[in-house]
Amino acid sequence: MNDKAAMLKLEKLSRWAERLIDPRLQARVEALDTRLNEFGVDPWGFDPRYLKYALPLGALLYRKYFRVETVGIRNVPAGRVLLIANHSGQIPIDGALIVLSMLLEAEPPRMVRSMVETWVPTLPLVSYFFPRTGQIVGTRENCRQLLDREEIILAFPEGVRGISKTFSRRYQLQEFGLGFMRLALMTGAPIVPVAVVGAEEQIPSLLDFKPLARLLSMPAFPVTPFFPWLGPLGILPLPVKIRIYFGRPMSFRGDPDEEDEVMMPKVKRVRRTIQRMLRDGLKVRRGIFW
């Protein structure tokens, strides 16, 4: 009996919470092309019900805090796509914003699957919050199967090298991994180059204190004007203005099992394109915060 009352109360609470949510956001979640089973999840553990609550928060961050502008989002074709972007800013907010841009601005809205690190499943709460909101552990097999399902995958070929670099090397693309190109060749998915301008300044790392990073088994230990001096507060990103540029889709042909030397020129073409987009984006930018 007691349980029933509690359930009713919970239901009332969730109805009340739902009223707070912008109906336009709800409509966008419902417009997603998902293939859910009778329990409301897809085979990869994505559950749009989680998005209903996560998306309004994300939208706030996207629209009010970072005031994101996108250019060329129509360049993202329907069906399978590999979004290849530059990685920056010490914490992967750029990934979240690209995912949000496709949810909030693309027509029709689409769920981008970003590839998360293998420590994600080992953390309580995070372990299921990430998959329920559509994020997947980044293995090549996962990427291949998702692309075969006509999904969008977001990958940062620079990886940690990109996100952890110091402020002095901002907007200089680090070395690209080759995996994404093999994946594109294997699945025939077009590559859409993406340039994120602004995220480099969100947490300007003056120095990467490597010995401490190793000690804490972190990818980097950034020393910024605010971190570690202000403690955890210091890791809060500055309210920088972020612009996301989507380039024209690039298609590649070839044998995915070729030697690295054969892969390199193709990868370099993508890297050059993103570098050029970054340069162009920086040229038109007037300030960091507006």
Binding site: P43, W44, T122, I136, V137, T139, R140, E141, N142, Q145
Partner: peptide, 9 residues
Amino acid sequence: GPTHSNFLT
């Protein structure tokens, strides 16, 4: 395992 793909072949 945490490093596994979702659907193992």
